[in-house]
């Protein structure tokens, strides 16, 4: 019975890493995705095609491959072994690994988000921009005061989907040895030779996603005070 407490502690620690990766990814990928969306709609053709190609590559390959690619990049391209990189950044090897994973996640999710943003922005009728223009608003004001809110409302449902998927994708972090929730459960299963840790992990995931679903559903409801 003492095991349960130990197992839950280990799982909680793993969940901490899962949560950290989740938060960091959202924190950076949400704004970066908007930037990517603007780039992919840019009138400057080279930027537009660069962005479209990047999005195509990222969406066309497994996230796990992208994580491995990022982790090999310093060593193979810049001839800097992970060890040296960690020393340079003054962080542990584990933290460096987390950095690699986070970078891959941010890039990957920014690309997915950018497509959602783009669809949302393109769905806003041109009349909204024109109304803003004849009322003397400049481009930034039109975006921030008129378009943005409508875009947020439109994209919240597909965004919620991606965010729930992100929770589950975090388990891919274990390819670089990060002890996330699932990895911690696996260790426990092997160590104590019982299957219950998987069950606990399942409960963790479900609770977390349930909470997120409630939160996002609430936000969606809040924003649905008007019809289009």
């Amino acid at each position: 019975m003492d095991n349960i407490q130990d197992i839950l502690m280990e799982l909680a620690e793993g969940f901490g890493n899962t949560l950290a990766l989740f938060v960091v990814t959202l924190l950076f990928a949400l704004p970066l995705g908007l930037l990517f969306a603007f780039a992919s709609m840019s009138k400057f053709k080279p930027l537009k095609w660069f962005m479209k190609t990047l999005i195509w590559i990222i969406r066309g390959t497994p996230l796990m491959l992208q994580i491995l690619f990022v982790s090999f990049l310093p060593n193979y391209v810049f001839k800097t072994p992970t060890k040296d990189l960690a020393a340079m950044l003054n962080i542990t090897i584990n933290e460096t690994m987390f950095l690699f994973v986070a970078l891959a996640f941010i890039l990957n999710y920014a690309c997915y988000f950018s497509e959602i943003y783009r669809a949302g922005i393109e769905a806003i009728p041109v009349g909204q921009y024109e109304a803003g223009q004849v009322l003397g608003l400049n481009k930034n004001q039109i975006f921030s005061k008129i378009v943005l809110m409508q875009v947020v409302r439109r994209i919240l449902p597909p965004m919620s989907n991606e965010i729930i998927t992100l929770v589950k994708d975090t388990s891919l972090a274990q390819v670089l040895g990060i002890v996330d929730l699932l990895n911690a459960a696996k260790h426990a299963v092997n160590h104590y030779v019982i299957l219950t840790p998987f069950l606990y992990a399942t409960v963790f995931y479900l609770l977390f996603n349930g909470l997120l679903t409630l939160l996002l559903g609430w936000a969606e409801k809040k924003l649905s005070y008007y019809k289009v």
């Binding site: 009349g127 909204q128 024109e130 109304a131 004849v134 409508q150 409302r153 008007y226 289009v228």
Partner: peptide, 19 residues
Amino acid sequence: KQTGLTFGMVFQNFNLFPQ
């Protein structure tokens, strides 16, 4: 920038801001 304020505009399909 001023032209927008010289001419007010009422559109065929209103184009009100729904939010």
